[in-house]
Amino acid sequence: MTASTDKLILAVPKGRILEQVMPVFEQAGLTPEPAFFKSGERRLRFATNHDNLDIVRVRSFDVATFLAYGAAHLGVAGSDVIAEFSHPEIYAPVDLNIGICRMVVACSAEFADAEDPKSWSHVRVATKYPSMTKDYFAKRGVQAECIKLNGAMELAPQMGLCRRIVDLVETGSTLKANGLVELETIAQVSSRLVVNRTAWKQHPEMVDGWISRLRAAVRQAAE
């Protein structure tokens, strides 16, 4: 737990999602201190224009970890990350409508025609999402042996690691460039506002305030 427990902490992922979520935050009246945007800044925790809200920048998977343990109280996380961790302590009340993509099963184009997904009993899959992959295949009676990779999943089939991968796809051009084709879609993915359950119950007014401001900002962005 943080030293000051009356302060809420918002965890945001680095990179692409951060760029997309900033306008939503602005619309909701949330502005981090200028140092937050400086590229050479070594600090990881920043103040905002709200005294009772600090913002931290972490890796996208770590947002879920910080939230689950109550180290951060609010966060932005992809529904892929939320589902992979599936922590009961995390609520995801607002779809921020950014970071939209889908999670798919893909395989080498050369094998695609010969593949009959219905006949599988065991598959070996390279993925960043072993838990979701196992669940997805287990539901149809297929045992999935997952090779956990943290990036460049598309490389796995051509290197002979496995035939199939489970990965996020936005346009499909990376798959295509690496000689892969989509077989099935596992889930639609977008970024959500996530809330730690305990924080919501202990600071209902503050948390509800942010939820309704962000919900309104998302609605406005859609119009």
């Binding site: 609520y91 995801a92 009340p93 959500r192 809330v195 919501w200």
Partner: peptide, 8 residues
């Protein structure tokens, strides 16, 4: 319900 996602 689990996510408290009113819009969904």
């Amino acid at each position: 319900i689990g996510n408290r996602d009113i819009s969904a």
